[in-house]
Amino acid sequence: MAYDVQQLMAMTQEELDDLFKASPAGDIPDGEAKGTAIVAPGTVYSEHIAQIINVFGWQGKVFDAEKGLLKNKVLFFGFQAIVARVYKGESWLDGKECVVLDYSDTSMLAKYIRDEIRLIGPKFYLGKVYWGKDRLIDFCLEF
C-alpha cells in the first residue's frame, strides 16, 4: 500500500509503530528530502503542529549517502545545519535493521538525538526520534 503524509498523521501511535516494524530498512537515502514532524498522531492537532514546526523549525534533511552524512534543513529559510552520521544498524524499537541517523559525535546541539528511518514507499521513509533512549516523536521524509 502506498502512504502519504496525511495518512500517517491520521494514524495512531500504535499504527505508526506497527507500520515501522513491518517495513524494510531500505537503502541509505541520497539527496534532499522534505520532512514532516508527526506530533500527537491521530489527533486534530497533528497537522497544525507539523505546519508550525515546518515553518519555524525543521523542513527536512539533505543526505550524502556516499559520505554517510546528512544535514538538517532548519529555520524558516532552510539553513543546512545539525550534521548526523548515517548508517545501517539495529532499531531500538524492534531490534531489526533500520537506517540510523546518529548525532552523538557530530552535533553539540543534538548530541543525545538518534533518529531511525525505514522505507514505507517509493522514496518515502517513516522515522522515529529518540532523546537518549526515550522516544519523542515520529516524522516522515519524502524524496
Score class of each variant (00 low, 15 high):
89 G>H: 05
66 E>H: 15
76 F>W: 12
74 V>A: 08
106 T>N: 05
94 D>G: 06
117 I>A: 04
78 G>T: 07
96 K>Y: 08
27 D>G: 15
20 F>C: 00
74 V>R: 07
84 A>K: 02
12 T>P: 01
120 I>V: 15
26 G>I: 04
29 P>D: 09
118 R>M: 07
20 F>N: 00
63 F>P: 00
109 L>Y: 07
143 F>G: 04
34 K>G: 13
90 E>V: 12
125 Y>Q: 00
53 I>W: 08
8 L>C: 05
128 K>N: 10
87 Y>C: 02
70 L>S: 08
3 Y>I: 04
25 A>I: 05
126 L>R: 02
110 A>Y: 08
90 E>A: 06
7 Q>P: 09
139 F>A: 03
124 F>K: 03
132 G>A: 14
130 Y>D: 06
49 I>A: 06
52 I>L: 11
31 G>N: 12
7 Q>C: 04
31 G>K: 09
22 A>G: 09
26 G>H: 04
61 K>R: 15
70 L>Q: 10
114 R>M: 09
61 K>E: 06
24 P>F: 08
33 A>C: 15
103 Y>H: 01
59 Q>L: 14
100 V>L: 09
116 E>Y: 01
19 L>V: 08
26 G>Q: 03
58 W>D: 02
13 Q>W: 00
87 Y>P: 03
101 L>V: 14
63 F>E: 06
83 V>I: 11
54 N>F: 14
77 F>Y: 15
19 L>Y: 01
19 L>I: 07
139 F>R: 01
87 Y>S: 10
143 F>W: 08
98 C>P: 00
105 D>V: 01
96 K>R: 15
38 I>Q: 00
70 L>K: 04
37 A>I: 09
141 L>W: 00
1 M>V: 12
35 G>P: 00
65 A>R: 10
39 V>D: 05
34 K>H: 12
143 F>R: 10
101 L>R: 03
112 Y>V: 12
75 L>M: 12
55 V>Q: 11
62 V>S: 14
7 Q>G: 11
108 M>A: 15
66 E>N: 15
81 A>S: 14
64 D>E: 09
60 G>C: 03
90 E>F: 07
139 F>Y: 09
64 D>S: 08
8 L>W: 00
118 R>N: 04
131 W>D: 13
141 L>M: 09
139 F>P: 00
67 K>A: 15
60 G>M: 08
65 A>E: 09
48 H>E: 13
20 F>W: 03
72 N>P: 11
32 E>I: 11
33 A>Y: 15
28 I>Q: 13
115 D>N: 05
95 G>A: 04
136 L>A: 08
117 I>S: 03
130 Y>P: 00
107 S>M: 02
72 N>F: 07
2 A>L: 11
41 P>S: 06
65 A>T: 12
70 L>N: 09
51 Q>G: 04
35 G>Y: 03
88 K>H: 14
105 D>G: 05
125 Y>M: 00
56 F>L: 14
67 K>I: 13
83 V>D: 06
89 G>L: 02
48 H>G: 10
82 I>L: 14
9 M>T: 07
29 P>I: 05
62 V>I: 11
2 A>M: 07
41 P>K: 03
90 E>Q: 13
91 S>P: 01
